[in-house]
Design a protein around this nucleic acid. Structure first.
Lengths: 120, 120
DNA sequence: TATACATATGAACGATTGTTCATATGTTCA
DNA sequence: TGAACATATGAACAATCGTTCATATGTATA
C-alpha cells in the first residue's frame, strides 16, 4: 500500500522540517506547467535550429527550409509551435511570411543554455 | 520529387544571400544536440518540480518524494536524468544520498525561463 | 476570375519518453 | 554476518511528439 510506504518514510527517513519548508515555497503547478511547455518547445533540435537561424536573420518559411535542408511542411509545423510559445513572431509581406525571434529576451534564453552546454 | 521542389523554391522564393549567410553562421549540429538534450531534460514537470525543490533546500531522495507526493522510484529515475545533464549533484551520507542543484548557473537557467513565462 | 505559388493544416505512423512494478545494490547497526 | 532501510535500476506499457503526405488557405498577377 502506498499509505504504508508514506508512513514508513515519514517515520524513518524524512526531515519533516525541510519537507514542510520546501512544500510551502514551491512554485504553483500552473507555473511549473508553463515552464515545462517552454522548455519542451526548446527541447527539439529542429526548433532550436530554426531559432538559431532566426537569431541571425529574419527569414521567410522557404528560406528557413532551404537553410536547414528541411521540408516546408516540417518547418511550418514547428514555426507554429514556436509561435504559440511566443518564441518567434512574424509579419506578412505579400505571399511570404517573415519570421524572427520574438524579442531580445528570447536570445537570452538561448544564450544561457549555450553557456551551460559549453561550460565543459 | 523533392529535387523539383527545391529547384522551384530556389528560383522563386529564396533569398539566396540570406540563406548562405545563415548557413555559415549556424551552430554545429553537436552544439544543437547538446542544447536539445539540456532543454529536453528541463521540459518535464516532474523534473522541474524536483529542481524547484532542490533550489530551496538540499534534500535526500525520500524527502523529495514526500515533498512532491511522488513515488521513490520515479524520483530516483528522474534524479538520474538530472544528474547526467549536470543539473544536480549529490553527496552520500550514510544510507541517504543528498541532492542539490549543481551550481548557481543552474538557478539562472531556471530563472530565465521563469522570466519568460511570467512576462505576460 | 483563373492560375501560380508561399504557407498552413489534418491525419497517421514510428519513435521517444515517463511511469509503475519488481527487484537489485549498498549502507548501517545489532 | 544478517536484518532493515534508502536508493538505484530493468522491463514493459501507455501516452506524447515530430515527421511525412496530401490537401487547404490565402495572396498576387495575368
Amino acid at each position: 500500500m502506498s499509505a504504508k510506504d508514506i508512513d514508513t518514510c515519514d517515520l524513518q527517513c524524512i526531515h519533516e522540517e525541510t519537507v514542510n519548508k520546501v512544500r510551502k515555497a514551491l512554485l504553483s503547478e500552473e507555473t511549473i506547467e508553463d515552464l515545462q511547455n517552454l522548455y519542451k518547445v526548446l527541447g527539439d533540435a529542429t526548433r532550436l535550429s530554426i531559432m538559431n537561424a532566426l537569431s541571425i536573420a529574419e527569414m521567410c518559411v522557404c528560406d528557413v527550409a532551404a537553410a536547414l535542408g528541411m521540408s516546408q511542411s516540417a518547418v511550418s509545423h514547428q514555426l507554429r509551435v514556436l509561435k504559440s510559445a511566443r518564441l518567434v513572431k512574424y509579419r506578412r509581406e505579400g505571399k511570404q511570411v517573415y519570421y524572427s525571434l520574438d524579442d531580445d529576451h528570447i536570445s537570452k534564453l538561448f544564450a544561457v543554455g549555450l553557456e551551460h552546454v559549453r561550460h565543459r
